[in-house]
Nucleic acid binder design. Structure first.
Length: 420
DNA sequence: TCTGGGGTCCTAGGACCC
DNA sequence: TCTGGGGTCCTAGGACCC
Protein backbone atom coordinates (compact mmCIF):
# COMPACT_ATOMS: atom_id res chain seq x y z
CA UNK A 1 0.00 0.00 0.00
CA UNK A 2 1.30 3.49 -0.82
CA UNK A 3 2.18 5.90 1.94
CA UNK A 4 -0.86 7.69 3.23
CA UNK A 5 -1.05 11.27 4.43
CA UNK A 6 -3.75 12.79 6.58
CA UNK A 7 -4.75 16.40 6.88
CA UNK A 8 -6.24 17.31 10.23
CA UNK A 9 -8.19 20.54 10.05
CA UNK A 10 -9.83 22.31 12.99
CA UNK A 11 -13.43 23.42 12.51
CA UNK A 12 -13.96 27.21 12.59
CA UNK A 13 -10.83 27.43 14.68
CA UNK A 14 -10.98 30.85 16.39
CA UNK A 15 -14.69 30.50 17.06
CA UNK A 16 -14.14 27.00 18.44
CA UNK A 17 -11.39 28.30 20.74
CA UNK A 18 -13.75 30.87 22.23
CA UNK A 19 -16.31 28.14 22.79
CA UNK A 20 -13.87 25.99 24.70
CA UNK A 21 -13.69 28.69 27.36
CA UNK A 22 -17.40 29.40 27.45
CA UNK A 23 -19.48 26.26 26.96
CA UNK A 24 -22.69 28.30 27.06
CA UNK A 25 -21.80 29.37 23.52
CA UNK A 26 -22.57 25.88 22.24
CA UNK A 27 -25.07 26.04 19.37
CA UNK A 28 -25.00 29.82 19.57
CA UNK A 29 -23.65 31.92 16.68
CA UNK A 30 -20.08 33.05 17.38
CA UNK A 31 -17.90 35.44 15.38
CA UNK A 32 -14.33 36.62 15.92
CA UNK A 33 -13.26 40.01 14.57
CA UNK A 34 -9.97 41.22 13.12
CA UNK A 35 -7.47 43.34 15.00
CA UNK A 36 -9.30 46.63 15.19
CA UNK A 37 -12.68 44.92 15.07
CA UNK A 38 -13.05 45.79 11.42
CA UNK A 39 -13.77 42.47 9.77
CA UNK A 40 -15.20 39.07 10.59
CA UNK A 41 -12.34 36.59 10.47
CA UNK A 42 -13.97 33.52 12.01
CA UNK A 43 -17.52 32.24 12.06
CA UNK A 44 -19.23 29.36 13.79
CA UNK A 45 -21.44 27.14 11.64
CA UNK A 46 -24.55 29.02 12.79
CA UNK A 47 -23.06 32.25 11.45
CA UNK A 48 -22.11 30.64 8.15
CA UNK A 49 -25.70 29.43 7.89
CA UNK A 50 -26.86 33.05 8.18
CA UNK A 51 -25.00 33.71 4.95
CA UNK A 52 -22.35 35.93 6.52
CA UNK A 53 -19.16 35.79 4.48
CA UNK A 54 -15.60 35.44 5.64
CA UNK A 55 -13.98 38.88 5.79
CA UNK A 56 -17.22 40.75 5.71
CA UNK A 57 -16.96 44.15 7.46
CA UNK A 58 -18.47 43.91 10.91
CA UNK A 59 -20.50 47.10 10.63
CA UNK A 60 -22.43 45.61 7.74
CA UNK A 61 -23.43 42.50 9.67
CA UNK A 62 -23.81 43.97 13.12
CA UNK A 63 -27.61 44.21 13.09
CA UNK A 64 -28.12 40.72 11.71
CA UNK A 65 -25.77 39.25 14.28
CA UNK A 66 -27.47 41.09 17.12
CA UNK A 67 -30.86 39.82 15.98
CA UNK A 68 -29.60 36.27 16.29
CA UNK A 69 -28.05 36.94 19.64
CA UNK A 70 -24.54 36.19 18.39
CA UNK A 71 -21.49 36.27 20.63
CA UNK A 72 -18.90 38.64 19.16
CA UNK A 73 -15.22 38.52 20.12
CA UNK A 74 -12.18 40.63 19.38
CA UNK A 75 -9.37 38.34 18.30
CA UNK A 76 -7.08 36.90 20.93
CA UNK A 77 -4.10 35.48 19.09
CA UNK A 78 -2.32 34.40 22.22
CA UNK A 79 -5.22 32.16 23.09
CA UNK A 80 -5.45 30.72 19.60
CA UNK A 81 -1.72 30.09 19.44
CA UNK A 82 -1.89 28.28 22.76
CA UNK A 83 -4.87 26.15 21.71
CA UNK A 84 -3.11 25.35 18.44
CA UNK A 85 -0.12 24.04 20.36
CA UNK A 86 -2.43 21.83 22.44
CA UNK A 87 -4.00 20.37 19.32
CA UNK A 88 -0.57 19.68 17.79
CA UNK A 89 0.65 18.10 21.03
CA UNK A 90 -2.36 15.80 21.03
CA UNK A 91 -1.65 14.79 17.45
CA UNK A 92 1.93 13.97 18.37
CA UNK A 93 0.61 11.40 20.86
CA UNK A 94 -0.99 9.58 17.92
CA UNK A 95 1.50 10.16 15.09
CA UNK A 96 5.28 10.28 14.99
CA UNK A 97 5.44 12.61 11.98
CA UNK A 98 3.42 15.79 12.38
CA UNK A 99 3.84 18.84 10.15
CA UNK A 100 2.18 21.95 11.53
CA UNK A 101 0.91 23.52 8.33
CA UNK A 102 -0.94 26.50 9.81
CA UNK A 103 -2.43 27.57 13.10
CA UNK A 104 -5.36 25.20 12.59
CA UNK A 105 -4.08 22.48 10.26
CA UNK A 106 -1.53 19.69 10.32
CA UNK A 107 -0.37 17.01 7.94
CA UNK A 108 0.57 13.67 9.46
CA UNK A 109 2.01 10.46 8.05
CA UNK A 110 -0.38 7.57 8.54
CA UNK A 111 1.47 4.64 10.05
CA UNK A 112 1.08 1.12 8.71
CA UNK A 113 -2.11 0.13 10.45
CA UNK A 114 -4.76 -2.29 9.45
CA UNK A 115 -7.68 -0.04 10.21
CA UNK A 116 -7.31 3.49 8.92
CA UNK A 117 -10.92 4.38 9.62
CA UNK A 118 -10.46 3.41 13.23
CA UNK A 119 -7.39 5.65 13.50
CA UNK A 120 -9.22 8.60 11.94
CA UNK A 121 -12.10 8.17 14.29
CA UNK A 122 -9.75 7.97 17.24
CA UNK A 123 -8.03 11.18 16.09
CA UNK A 124 -11.29 13.09 15.94
CA UNK A 125 -12.42 11.96 19.37
CA UNK A 126 -9.07 12.32 21.12
CA UNK A 127 -8.49 15.91 19.95
CA UNK A 128 -12.04 16.80 20.94
CA UNK A 129 -11.66 15.18 24.34
CA UNK A 130 -8.24 16.59 25.14
CA UNK A 131 -8.62 20.11 23.75
CA UNK A 132 -12.32 20.70 23.15
CA UNK A 133 -11.64 21.53 19.49
CA UNK A 134 -13.65 19.70 16.79
CA UNK A 135 -11.58 18.58 13.81
CA UNK A 136 -12.02 16.84 10.48
CA UNK A 137 -9.60 14.38 8.91
CA UNK A 138 -8.89 13.78 5.22
CA UNK A 139 -6.69 10.90 4.13
CA UNK A 140 -5.10 10.06 0.79
CA UNK A 141 -1.84 9.37 -1.01
CA UNK A 142 -0.76 13.00 -1.58
CA UNK A 143 -1.16 16.22 0.37
CA UNK A 144 -3.41 17.76 -2.27
CA UNK A 145 -5.68 14.71 -2.27
CA UNK A 146 -5.74 14.70 1.54
CA UNK A 147 -6.96 18.29 1.30
CA UNK A 148 -9.65 17.19 -1.14
CA UNK A 149 -10.68 14.48 1.32
CA UNK A 150 -10.93 16.91 4.23
CA UNK A 151 -12.88 19.37 2.10
CA UNK A 152 -15.22 16.53 1.19
CA UNK A 153 -15.96 16.00 4.89
CA UNK A 154 -16.98 19.66 5.03
CA UNK A 155 -18.97 19.72 1.80
CA UNK A 156 -20.91 16.55 2.55
CA UNK A 157 -21.25 17.35 6.24
CA UNK A 158 -20.09 13.83 7.07
CA UNK A 159 -21.01 12.80 10.59
CA UNK A 160 -17.90 10.70 11.14
CA UNK A 161 -15.72 13.76 10.42
CA UNK A 162 -13.22 11.83 8.29
CA UNK A 163 -12.94 10.73 4.69
CA UNK A 164 -10.44 8.41 3.04
CA UNK A 165 -9.54 8.42 -0.66
CA UNK A 166 -7.58 5.28 -1.38
CA UNK A 167 -7.90 3.62 -4.76
CA UNK A 168 -7.81 5.20 -8.21
CA UNK A 169 -11.41 4.47 -9.15
CA UNK A 170 -12.64 6.00 -5.93
CA UNK A 171 -10.37 8.99 -6.42
CA UNK A 172 -11.57 9.75 -9.94
CA UNK A 173 -15.17 9.52 -8.85
CA UNK A 174 -14.52 12.08 -6.10
CA UNK A 175 -12.49 14.37 -8.36
CA UNK A 176 -15.15 14.36 -11.07
CA UNK A 177 -17.52 15.98 -8.60
CA UNK A 178 -14.97 18.32 -7.06
CA UNK A 179 -14.81 21.85 -8.48
CA UNK A 180 -11.33 22.66 -9.75
CA UNK A 181 -11.46 26.03 -7.99
CA UNK A 182 -11.80 24.25 -4.64
CA UNK A 183 -8.50 22.42 -5.09
CA UNK A 184 -5.69 23.52 -2.78
CA UNK A 185 -3.41 25.85 -4.76
CA UNK A 186 -5.97 26.88 -7.36
CA UNK A 187 -7.29 30.35 -6.69
CA UNK A 188 -9.57 32.77 -8.43
CA UNK A 189 -7.28 33.74 -11.29
CA UNK A 190 -6.31 30.21 -12.23
CA UNK A 191 -9.82 28.77 -12.03
CA UNK A 192 -11.12 31.57 -14.28
CA UNK A 193 -8.40 30.76 -16.80
CA UNK A 194 -9.16 27.04 -16.56
CA UNK A 195 -12.87 27.64 -17.10
CA UNK A 196 -12.04 29.18 -20.46
CA UNK A 197 -10.58 25.90 -21.65
CA UNK A 198 -13.52 23.94 -20.22
CA UNK A 199 -11.72 22.58 -17.19
CA UNK A 200 -14.38 22.55 -14.49
CA UNK A 201 -13.72 19.58 -12.24
CA UNK A 202 -10.52 18.44 -10.59
CA UNK A 203 -10.70 15.37 -12.78
CA UNK A 204 -10.70 17.55 -15.91
CA UNK A 205 -7.42 19.07 -14.78
CA UNK A 206 -5.76 15.68 -14.32
CA UNK A 207 -6.61 14.88 -17.94
CA UNK A 208 -4.79 17.86 -19.44
CA UNK A 209 -1.46 17.37 -21.12
CA UNK A 210 1.59 18.04 -18.95
CA UNK A 211 3.34 20.29 -21.45
CA UNK A 212 0.15 22.32 -21.97
CA UNK A 213 -0.23 22.86 -18.24
CA UNK A 214 3.40 23.87 -17.91
CA UNK A 215 3.26 26.25 -20.87
CA UNK A 216 -0.06 27.92 -20.08
CA UNK A 217 -0.02 27.91 -16.29
CA UNK A 218 3.47 27.21 -15.03
CA UNK A 219 5.17 24.72 -12.80
CA UNK A 220 2.93 25.32 -9.79
CA UNK A 221 -0.25 24.06 -11.43
CA UNK A 222 1.64 21.18 -13.01
CA UNK A 223 2.62 20.02 -9.55
CA UNK A 224 -0.99 20.28 -8.42
CA UNK A 225 -2.11 18.18 -11.39
CA UNK A 226 0.48 15.52 -10.54
CA UNK A 227 -0.63 15.49 -6.93
CA UNK A 228 -4.24 15.03 -8.02
CA UNK A 229 -3.19 12.10 -10.17
CA UNK A 230 -1.66 10.56 -7.10
CA UNK A 231 2.02 11.33 -7.71
CA UNK A 232 3.40 13.11 -4.65
CA UNK A 233 5.25 16.37 -5.40
CA UNK A 234 4.95 17.99 -2.00
CA UNK A 235 6.93 16.40 0.79
CA UNK A 236 6.20 16.49 4.47
CA UNK A 237 8.12 19.35 6.05
CA UNK A 238 9.00 18.09 9.45
CA UNK A 239 11.88 20.46 10.07
CA UNK A 240 10.77 23.84 8.74
CA UNK A 241 13.20 26.59 7.81
CA UNK A 242 13.01 29.79 9.83
CA UNK A 243 10.63 32.32 8.37
CA UNK A 244 11.99 34.70 5.76
CA UNK A 245 9.80 37.76 6.18
CA UNK A 246 8.12 39.51 9.00
CA UNK A 247 5.44 42.04 8.27
CA UNK A 248 3.80 44.50 10.60
CA UNK A 249 1.02 46.39 8.90
CA UNK A 250 -2.02 48.24 10.13
CA UNK A 251 -4.78 50.33 8.64
CA UNK A 252 -5.54 53.66 10.16
CA UNK A 253 -9.03 54.11 11.52
CA UNK A 254 -9.04 57.70 10.30
CA UNK A 255 -7.61 59.70 7.45
CA UNK A 256 -3.96 60.69 7.75
CA UNK A 257 -2.90 63.79 5.87
CA UNK A 258 0.20 65.02 7.66
CA UNK A 259 3.63 63.61 7.16
CA UNK A 260 4.35 64.07 10.84
CA UNK A 261 1.45 61.85 11.79
CA UNK A 262 2.51 59.23 9.29
CA UNK A 263 6.03 59.32 10.63
CA UNK A 264 4.82 58.77 14.18
CA UNK A 265 2.92 55.69 13.09
CA UNK A 266 5.87 54.36 11.17
CA UNK A 267 8.00 54.73 14.26
CA UNK A 268 5.45 52.90 16.40
CA UNK A 269 5.04 50.08 13.90
CA UNK A 270 8.74 49.71 13.26
CA UNK A 271 9.37 49.42 16.96
CA UNK A 272 6.67 46.73 17.22
CA UNK A 273 8.28 44.93 14.31
CA UNK A 274 11.63 45.02 16.10
CA UNK A 275 9.98 43.54 19.19
CA UNK A 276 8.50 40.76 17.11
CA UNK A 277 11.91 40.07 15.60
CA UNK A 278 13.50 39.65 18.99
CA UNK A 279 10.61 37.59 20.34
CA UNK A 280 11.14 35.13 17.49
CA UNK A 281 14.92 35.29 17.82
CA UNK A 282 15.32 36.62 14.29
CA UNK A 283 17.43 39.34 12.74
CA UNK A 284 16.75 41.40 9.65
CA UNK A 285 19.03 42.42 6.83
CA UNK A 286 16.68 44.84 5.13
CA UNK A 287 13.44 46.62 5.71
CA UNK A 288 10.57 47.84 3.58
CA UNK A 289 8.11 50.62 4.31
CA UNK A 290 4.98 50.83 2.20
CA UNK A 291 2.03 53.19 2.24
CA UNK A 292 -1.30 53.13 0.48
CA UNK A 293 -4.34 55.28 0.11
CA UNK A 294 -7.56 53.65 1.23
CA UNK A 295 -8.50 50.81 -1.01
CA UNK A 296 -12.19 51.26 -0.36
CA UNK A 297 -12.47 54.91 -1.26
CA UNK A 298 -13.39 54.70 -4.92
CA UNK A 299 -13.84 58.45 -5.32
CA UNK A 300 -10.26 59.49 -4.53
CA UNK A 301 -7.24 58.68 -6.67
CA UNK A 302 -5.20 55.82 -5.32
CA UNK A 303 -1.57 56.03 -4.42
CA UNK A 304 0.80 53.31 -3.31
CA UNK A 305 4.51 53.37 -2.93
CA UNK A 306 7.28 51.66 -1.05
CA UNK A 307 10.98 51.68 -0.43
CA UNK A 308 13.37 49.06 0.77
CA UNK A 309 16.52 49.94 2.64
CA UNK A 310 19.39 47.65 3.50
CA UNK A 311 20.33 47.65 7.13
CA UNK A 312 24.03 48.27 7.75
CA UNK A 313 24.26 44.92 9.53
CA UNK A 314 21.84 42.14 10.36
CA UNK A 315 20.04 43.35 13.40
CA UNK A 316 16.97 43.47 15.56
CA UNK A 317 17.49 46.54 17.70
CA UNK A 318 14.62 48.94 18.03
CA UNK A 319 16.82 51.92 17.43
CA UNK A 320 18.24 50.72 14.15
CA UNK A 321 14.93 49.39 12.83
CA UNK A 322 13.08 52.58 13.71
CA UNK A 323 15.71 54.87 12.23
CA UNK A 324 15.83 52.83 9.06
CA UNK A 325 12.06 52.87 8.77
CA UNK A 326 12.01 56.65 8.99
CA UNK A 327 14.75 56.78 6.37
CA UNK A 328 12.70 54.54 4.12
CA UNK A 329 9.59 56.65 4.57
CA UNK A 330 11.54 59.72 3.62
CA UNK A 331 12.86 57.96 0.57
CA UNK A 332 9.33 57.12 -0.51
CA UNK A 333 8.52 60.77 -0.62
CA UNK A 334 11.63 61.61 -2.54
CA UNK A 335 11.13 58.76 -4.94
CA UNK A 336 7.46 59.59 -5.43
CA UNK A 337 8.41 63.12 -6.22
CA UNK A 338 11.24 62.39 -8.58
CA UNK A 339 9.92 59.39 -10.44
CA UNK A 340 7.18 60.04 -12.91
CA UNK A 341 5.85 56.54 -13.04
CA UNK A 342 5.74 55.83 -9.37
CA UNK A 343 2.19 56.73 -8.56
CA UNK A 344 -0.99 58.16 -9.90
CA UNK A 345 -1.03 61.16 -7.63
CA UNK A 346 2.54 62.15 -8.14
CA UNK A 347 2.31 61.35 -11.80
CA UNK A 348 0.29 64.45 -12.29
CA UNK A 349 2.68 66.91 -10.78
CA UNK A 350 3.69 69.61 -13.24
CA UNK A 351 7.03 69.34 -14.96
CA UNK A 352 8.21 72.30 -12.99
CA UNK A 353 7.36 70.51 -9.79
CA UNK A 354 9.07 67.39 -10.99
CA UNK A 355 12.25 69.24 -11.85
CA UNK A 356 12.80 70.40 -8.35
CA UNK A 357 15.74 68.72 -6.70
CA UNK A 358 15.39 66.06 -4.10
CA UNK A 359 13.18 67.28 -1.33
CA UNK A 360 14.56 65.40 1.46
CA UNK A 361 17.91 64.89 3.00
CA UNK A 362 17.00 61.91 5.01
CA UNK A 363 19.98 62.03 7.26
CA UNK A 364 18.87 65.43 8.36
CA UNK A 365 15.13 65.39 7.94
CA UNK A 366 13.41 68.62 7.10
CA UNK A 367 9.83 67.81 7.73
CA UNK A 368 8.50 71.14 6.55
CA UNK A 369 9.53 70.24 3.03
CA UNK A 370 7.64 66.97 3.23
CA UNK A 371 4.62 68.81 4.52
CA UNK A 372 4.90 71.10 1.54
CA UNK A 373 4.59 68.11 -0.78
CA UNK A 374 1.64 66.80 1.15
CA UNK A 375 -0.02 70.19 0.89
CA UNK A 376 0.62 70.17 -2.82
CA UNK A 377 -1.06 66.80 -3.15
CA UNK A 378 -3.92 67.84 -0.94
CA UNK A 379 -4.47 70.99 -2.96
CA UNK A 380 -4.63 69.04 -6.19
CA UNK A 381 -6.84 66.24 -5.01
CA UNK A 382 -8.57 67.45 -1.94
CA UNK A 383 -7.68 65.68 1.22
CA UNK A 384 -5.34 62.87 0.38
CA UNK A 385 -5.92 59.99 2.69
CA UNK A 386 -2.68 58.20 3.15
CA UNK A 387 -3.06 54.87 4.85
CA UNK A 388 -0.56 52.45 6.05
CA UNK A 389 -1.44 49.20 4.44
CA UNK A 390 -5.14 49.19 3.81
CA UNK A 391 -7.28 46.13 3.70
CA UNK A 392 -9.04 43.66 1.52
CA UNK A 393 -9.23 39.99 0.94
CA UNK A 394 -7.29 38.60 -1.97
CA UNK A 395 -7.85 41.70 -4.01
CA UNK A 396 -5.46 43.17 -6.52
CA UNK A 397 -4.06 45.68 -4.15
CA UNK A 398 -3.09 43.00 -1.74
CA UNK A 399 -1.37 41.04 -4.46
CA UNK A 400 0.81 43.94 -5.36
CA UNK A 401 1.44 44.55 -1.71
CA UNK A 402 2.95 41.18 -1.10
CA UNK A 403 6.34 41.82 -2.51
CA UNK A 404 6.60 45.05 -0.61
CA UNK A 405 7.32 43.28 2.62
CA UNK A 406 9.59 40.77 0.99
CA UNK A 407 12.90 42.28 1.87
CA UNK A 408 12.40 41.91 5.55
CA UNK A 409 14.71 38.97 5.64
CA UNK A 410 16.05 37.22 8.62
CA UNK A 411 18.34 34.44 9.62
CA UNK A 412 19.07 32.33 12.66
CA UNK A 413 22.73 31.42 12.96
CA UNK A 414 24.90 32.27 15.84
CA UNK A 415 24.37 35.89 14.84
CA UNK A 416 21.55 35.87 17.36
CA UNK A 417 23.92 37.45 19.76
CA UNK A 418 24.22 40.55 17.65
CA UNK A 419 22.06 43.00 19.48
CA UNK A 420 23.54 46.45 19.31
C1' DT B 1 -18.55 56.31 10.90
C1' DC B 2 -17.21 51.65 10.54
C1' DT B 3 -13.75 47.42 5.38
C1' DG B 4 -7.48 42.26 8.57
C1' DG B 5 -2.96 40.81 9.02
C1' DG B 6 -0.08 37.83 8.28
C1' DG B 7 2.92 34.46 5.08
C1' DT B 8 5.19 31.56 0.57
C1' DC B 9 6.71 30.66 -4.13
C1' DC B 10 7.44 31.59 -9.22
C1' DT B 11 8.77 34.41 -13.26
C1' DA B 12 10.28 38.08 -16.35
C1' DG B 13 13.37 41.64 -17.43
C1' DG B 14 17.33 44.61 -16.75
C1' DA B 15 22.01 45.60 -14.94
C1' DC B 16 26.33 44.01 -14.55
C1' DC B 17 30.31 40.88 -14.72
C1' DC B 18 33.41 37.69 -17.08
C1' DT C 1 35.12 47.31 -35.31
C1' DC C 2 31.80 43.96 -34.56
C1' DT C 3 29.67 40.35 -32.26
C1' DG C 4 28.46 36.33 -28.06
C1' DG C 5 27.07 33.74 -24.40
C1' DG C 6 26.74 32.43 -19.61
C1' DG C 7 25.95 33.56 -14.96
C1' DT C 8 24.23 36.21 -10.89
C1' DC C 9 21.70 39.64 -8.57
C1' DC C 10 17.97 42.82 -8.07
C1' DT C 11 13.34 44.72 -8.85
C1' DA C 12 8.74 44.28 -9.94
C1' DG C 13 4.74 41.83 -10.34
C1' DG C 14 1.51 37.96 -9.99
C1' DA C 15 -0.56 34.05 -7.75
C1' DC C 16 -1.62 31.36 -3.90
C1' DC C 17 -2.41 30.05 1.30
C1' DC C 18 -4.46 30.65 6.28
Amino acid sequence: MPNLIALIDCDNFYASCERVFDPSLKNKPVVVLSNNDGCIVARSQEVKDLGIKMGSPYFKEKALLARHNAAVFSSNYELYGDMSERVMATLRTLYSDVETYSIDEAFVKIPDVSNIEELCSQTVSKVKKWTGIPVKVGVSITKTLAKVAAETVKQRKLKDRYFVIKDIAHKDDILSRFAVGDVWGIGRATSAKLAKIAVKSALDLTRLDDSDIKRQFGIVLLRTAWELRGNPCLDMELDPEPQKNLCYSRSFSHTITKFEELKESIIAYASSAAEKLRARRLIASSLTVFINTSYFDSTAPTYANSTTVSLPYEANSTKLIVNSAVDALSKIYRKGYNYKKSGIILNDLTSEELQQPSLFDYKNPKDDKISAVMDLINKKYGKGSIRLAGSGFDNDWKMSRNHLSKRYTSDWNELLDIKP
